[in-house]
Each structure stands twice: as C-alpha cells, then as structure tokens.
C-alpha cells in the first residue's frame, strides 16, 4: 500500500471516529440507538451490530457498484442492507438469544437507520471495497464509542452499575456495582429524557473542546503541527 492510500484510509478513520462522528456531529440514525443505550452492554451490542452491517454493506456495495444500474441503486442498496441485517438478526437469535430478546425490534430496525444508507450512497457507491468497508466500520466505530460512553453514563447514574447483562455475552462475567447497594438510582437517566440530556451534554463537551482547540491554534500560529510539516 502506498503512502497516499494509507493517508486516505487514515483520513477516513479520523472522519468516522471524530470529525464527522455520526452521533456527535451528524446526529444521524439516533432513534434506535438512544432507545437501547440504557446500559453499556445494550449500547455496545447494538453498536457492534451496526458496525458489522455498515462495514459489510459498504464492502458489498462497493464490490458490486459497477453492476448496479444508477437509476435503481436505492432499491438495490436497501435490498443488500436488509439481507445483511436479516442474516445478523437470525444469527443473534440463534447464538446470542438472551441479548436478542433484550435488543428485540432494534436489530431489524438497523435497516432503517439512515446512517447506513447514507454511507452506502455517499461513499461506498464511489469507492473501492477496501475503503468502503473501512469507511463503514469507522463510521460505526465512531457511533460505538459515543454510545458506549452514553450507555455507561446512563447505567451508572440510573442504577449505579456498570456492565449489567455482561453475562449474556461473556458467560461467567459479572456486572460491577459501582455506587453501592444503597444507591437508589436516578431513574430519569435510564428513561428517554436521560438519553437526550446526556447526549446534549456530550455534544456540548465536544463543541467546547473544539472551540478550545481552535482558540489555542489561533493564539499560537507557530504550533507544533507547523513545525512538524516544515
């Protein structure tokens, strides 16, 4: 792989994980993810399923992009995404049954998650399978770390635990009781308003950080980046 390609892939990763983060910047496809981010395990599980769908659908669409007629591309994209999600749904049902019962309707709903179709249409349809797979995965992973943070915060504030339900994925593992047995739990964090309040605080934190970085750069034009590139 030549340096240019490597730089391009690095760029894709940086955009997915931070600059164009699905959850913090684009705010796309948040409905099912806010609904299941009541605990770390739920949030990460559904995010992982979304990462898988996004990477696979990106790769498949990119590989088939020369065969897909332009005017019927949307139905074909949906067909590909729906087929992949159905397979994933069946796999969850068969091998992660308890988690399947918890995530329920939200696995099939990945089909309607607009971020999946958005990346397929905007990126995979015009790029190589490798780049498209990585783009889907990076976008999904950007979603995953935010959702993991959100799920942890909601679970910790709402019930004082972390990793509850972990035994559904890793048999024998135990959740952590972090805030003591007596902690009553601030229920609103687990209910829908808590998702919006905490996501708002996360977005505000990111914006404050970006504003801070911009200010530092403006104040010090001879920043290390310039030195390095000089």
């Amino acid at each position: 792989m030549n340096p240019e390609e490597r730089a391009a892939l690095g760029d894709i990763g940086r955009k997915g994980l931070w600059e164009n983060n699905t959850a913090l910047v684009q705010l796309l496809g948040m409905c099912p993810l806010l609904a299941v981010s009541t605990s770390f395990v739920n949030a990460v599980s559904l995010s992982l399923a979304t990462v898988l769908v996004m990477a696979l659908s990106g790769g498949v669409v990119a590989a088939l992009r020369t065969l897909i007629p332009h005017e019927i591309r949307i139905p074909v994209f949906i067909l590909i995404i729906a087929a992949l999600v159905t397979c994933l749904d069946l796999a969850f049902n068969a091998w992660l049954h308890e988690l399947y019962l918890v995530l329920g309707i939200f696995i099939p709903l990945i089909v309607t998650n607009c971020i999946v179709l958005a990346r397929v249409e905007a990126f995979a349809a015009k790029n190589s399978p490798l780049a498209a797979t990585w783009d889907g995965a990076a976008m999904g992973l950007g979603l995953l770390w935010v959702l993991a943070l959100l799920g942890s915060a909601r679970e910790l504030i709402g019930s004082g635990t972390l990793f509850s339900g972990i035994q559904m994925i890793l048999p024998g593992a135990h959740p952590l009781q972090l805030l003591g047995e007596d902690y009553r739990g601030l229920l609103i964090a687990i209910l829908p308003p808590g998702a919006f309040i905490l996501l708002g605080l996360l977005i505000a934190t990111r914006n404050a950080w970006m504003a801070h970085v911009a200010k530092v750069r403006a104040a010090a034009p001879h920043a290390p980046t310039d030195v390095a590139s000089a």
Partner: peptide, 11 residues
Amino acid sequence: VLLGLFTVAFT
C-alpha cells in the same frame, strides 16, 4: 432483470 438477479442472490 438486474434487480431480479440481485433479489434472487440476496434471498
């Protein structure tokens, strides 16, 4: 025809 083929393949 192509849509039909895609449908068959993914089904």
